[in-house]
Design a protein around this nucleic acid. Sequence first.
DNA 1: CGGGCCTTTGACTGGTTTCAACTTCTGTGG
DNA 2: CCACAGAAGTTGAAACCAGTCAAAGGCCCG
Lengths: 193, 193
Amino acid sequence: MYEVFLNAFHEKVPLTDAERAFVQSFLMPKKLRRKQYLLQEGDVCKAIAFVEKGALRSYCVDDNSTEHIVQFALEGRTISDLYSFLTGETATYHIEALEDSELVLITKQAHEELLGKMPKYETFIRLQITGAYIALQKRLTAAISISNDERYKAFAAAYPEILQRVPQHMIASYMGITPETLSRVRRKIVRGK
Amino acid sequence: MYEVFLNAFHEKVPLTDAERAFVQSFLMPKKLRRKQYLLQEGDVCKAIAFVEKGALRSYCVDDNSTEHIVQFALEGRTISDLYSFLTGETATYHIEALEDSELVLITKQAHEELLGKMPKYETFIRLQITGAYIALQKRLTAAISISNDERYKAFAAAYPEILQRVPQHMIASYMGITPETLSRVRRKIVRGK
DNA sequence: CGGGCCTTTGACTGGTTTCAACTTCTGTGG
DNA sequence: CCACAGAAGTTGAAACCAGTCAAAGGCCCG
């Protein structure tokens, strides 16, 4: 329990055993069954979730009630509606488990206390967000500059695990295209090879 | 000089006069004329740039040698190729001045020293990146879920200054559509009103 | 074994790109 | 100060690509 999280932390910012225990005292475990929700649009996001095991997705819903997947989070990744978490506004995203999952929650209270009491935690958070920012920028760059075919190939190369564990229509949603189009893209790639 | 930057810093994380002076000793001013480059693809990004005055853009170039604008930075905003800055890899973005501009540079060396010596700097950086991350996430969500018309309206409402200071074809590039399409979108909006 | 969801495939439609021409605006040099 | 070249923006027509709607086949789960 907490192993994956604490190791990820330790890897970025080395921890003594005492610090490890200290951090741990702020954490909360949570299990989610497939299709259960961690967060619904309209709620306030009260915690950052780190995935120890399983897979989640966050998504928003537009005016036509079409879902658009914002992020997938497999083991070792963090997921939340950061805006809602930080401001206390109601969330614009839903977060749902795609598989039975085990999470580590850092509540807002714990987060703020850790920030105040433990510089290493702030460093860890800074590094996490920086990494997330860079990844997001890459994704955006790809979204506006590469064709669907190439985008899919790049995605498949970068995240083979997601491809295997997530249904196709969700990949399509993540890419911002329809399931039908993704199906045709895949056919074209297979034949073209 | 440095006023805008130091005030932005102070606003997020209050500083004493001594701290203000301390931070300042790590900064470097830089002026750029319109159309001059801060960074070219292939260089390594050696500094984060904070815009005191003026306007810059960052963009990447795809296989068809089409430009795609990643970011605009007006006064008070930060711009860089963060990935290149942090890893030392060659940059994938170009950064160009759209107007005569005055920048504050934080070199990699200064950045690391400040991170080590001044917890408030780390906090400031964390807050900056968090804000940038949330903004980027909003943009991505908009890009995959909203029609061009609505996107343009939202952009115009959110960033009226950019609209007035940046040529239309760059807005189009930022939105990921052709200048012709943007022109038609605008016409439709004006008539439709 | 049956039902429902997912994926694939086809035909049609609509919006975007592309290419080209024309106008407007701007900055520069004569 | 005017003339002109180049860039920026607008408009039109044709081609193309993705979306939509509909239907059929496959697969998993109950």
